[in-house]
Design a protein around this nucleic acid. Structure first.
Lengths: 219, 219, 219, 219
DNA sequence: AATGAATGAGCCTTCATTCAT
DNA sequence: GATGAATGAAGGCTCATTCAT
């Protein structure tokens, strides 16, 4: 791995750059963000980017990597859930809380949204490090709920249905608020989690019943 | 009204520009797309953009407007449905088919996705012309299904849940395919429509029952 | 002479173009004035300039020629003056009135000022048609006043002294007004003519006396 | 204060840019001068203008400011004059020498002439820093000559009369030479100074006498 | 005679990058 | 390790001009 600077002040500069770049990339996207914007906000010279990351895109990649770290922290919570419904609720909560958690800088979610809408070479890392594990986690929960007769496709589709509901709330809140001012004015996180959990669980329950009947008929 | 050119050849040039710009804006986004790219693909001189649309951004706005036209065509189909379930299925079909319809150029959906992920001043038009009418259409269907006791918030949340499921399939197919290669290899449009319809309908059915019980208890 | 169009409507277009171009060249100068500005103000198509004048610079030259016409009209007034002092006063009046005469469009003076400060190829015409005759006229008056002993150089210098006084009042009124607000607020054309005439005449009178003494001594 | 570069080489580049820009702005005026011309003559990259002055116009303003410096140097000479006539001669000499002094770059006078003929936002600085002090200096001299009875208007008009004579010699030499080839061939700076001084002094003397008579009559 | 449409050239500016210190 | 200075490349836009009608 190149460009690993050991000096303490070097690490400090790196950190300031990643922080500033994260915010600005999230605000404007990869192309509209300029190096001058980033270095100005970071309070360093513009040549520092070339020194620490050799490239604007390398900085972007580093920012993405940074954004993906710490996302796995809530996984244990989900694993410890006893009932599948609890697991489902915990999973949905994790998604919705992407927007609120203060343990990570606020720009990470927005940044990932940009990357999904307009993928760069960094998309692979996003999929592998962030989304893939979540999908697998979720698939496990769904498999538990749907029972042993569920096909991989059914599990996949169900997973997408749940993820999609969360996705809009997390990444397109602005549009939702514009469409539904009454939601914007009285925004209650728990309400949304409750709705998606109920909506999804009842749909999964129905799927489970259908699968059970199908499997019974097949025997 | 400025910039309305009447000559036939002018209209032709406008069309070529919008076509080329649509593709390139969809590929690269507003900032990364260059005027040279667009005019080269359109086969016209770069000054033509200034002549027909005074600005790069005005061209972008025109492209967005163009993308939004023709989206309302399937509304009648939905209005003619007899049962709510049929209406729901027709609505979901309309969403999913955004990706496949050949009556419109292929770039429109991608372009709208960009606009949602990284809104510009053109977002207002997208929301008002494209999304708002769909949301109202859907809310009517949902209201029919949930029955008279449903609150506005319940209808809103249910609508977002359905929209969200379609959204991922339409706008993030690339990511879905990467995550689920078996879906990519054997992609069946009807399967997806079937799944989302069933998933959503059973969830709505469950909501309806709860609401019914709640309203009964209240009396 | 090329580009002499005979049709009546063509002459009309030419006239409108020269009028509009005169104003805009006077406002902004040759380079800063754009063809679009001019044709917009003239209410004609931009290709008309190329058709009637073949060139932006040819249009400018035509405008200059236009501006120079009609300047000779007051010459007879001066020629008819009986005493040299009257002639001097009439000459100064002619200069000062360049700014006020309503028989010609108001932009001509400003335009000539531009040409003097930043000469183009059109300067020759300005000098030959506008300035040269005036200078010769003035030199005659001055020669009358100074008497037969005056050298050409003395006449020349005296002429420049008189012209220069008028020049500032005519071409740099804006600066004068800024420097002397009390003059701006109570601007009296006659006062200025009176001052320059007295100032110049007394100076010329003094010159005449010196020349007389010098010539007397020489004999 | 932005744009103050401290490094020695930066100062050197700034100086080269101002020098080159001064010459080219003087040759062609603000609009006709191109950044490429300037940077080529200065031997620097075109982006240097953006780096040192953020703008073409900011560069122009800096050039004007530069042109105005050092103009006040001869003021003491005038202040030290004993008789009013000496002061008047020194003042006229200062004006005429604007064209010849080699202590300043040769373009400054031409540049100021452009600015007067076609004012930009930089005119304010020209008036305040260059012209205003000279006018006040001159008004003092004239007030001494005319005596206590002179009105402000009389002093103002007299000042303009003197300034105007110098103005033509300084700013329109080209035209003068074209009109009077014999002056061009045998140009003697002292002759001109002598003429303007005599011409003006005799006129002022005459004014003083009139004022004296008027004041005497009023009592 | 006039115009709508189109164009090539060039301008100012910005950007990511690199160099020298 | 960090920075002030400099730069080549390219971008958006404007302009005078020309073409086809």
């Amino acid at each position: 791995m190149p460009n690993i600077k050991n000096n303490a002040s070097a690490q400090e500069t790196r950190r300031k750059l990643i922080e500033a770049a994260g915010e600005i990339f999230a605000e404007r996207g990869l192309h509209a963000a300029t190096i001058k914007d980033i270095t100005t906000r970071a309070g360093v010279n513009c040549a520092a980017i070339n020194y620490h990351f050799s490239d604007k895109f390398e900085l972007y990649a580093a920012v993405i990597r940074e954004a993906l770290q710490g996302c796995a922290s809530t996984f244990e919570v989900i694993s410890n859930c006893k009932t599948p419904e609890e697991g489902l609720r915990a999973y949905i909560t994790m998604h919705i809380d992407d927007m609120y958690t203060r343990s990570r800088p606020t720009w990470t979610t927005t940044l990932v949204a940009h990357e999904l809408a307009q993928p760069t070479a960094a998309l692979d890392a996003v999929v592998e490090d962030l989304i893939q594990p979540r999908v697998e986690l979720m698939n496990g929960i769904i498999r538990d709920i749907l029972g042993p007769g569920a096909t991989e496709k059914e599990i996949t589709y169900a997973g997408i249905s749940i993820w999609g509901q969360c996705y809009l709330h997390v990444h397109h809140r602005e549009v939702i608020f514009r469409l539904h001012p009454h939601v914007a004015q009285n925004y209650v996180r728990e309400e949304i989690i409750e709705h998606i959990t109920n909506f999804s669980f009842s749909a999964l329950d129905n799927m489970r019943e259908r699968i059970r009947q199908r499997e019974a008929a097949r025997k």
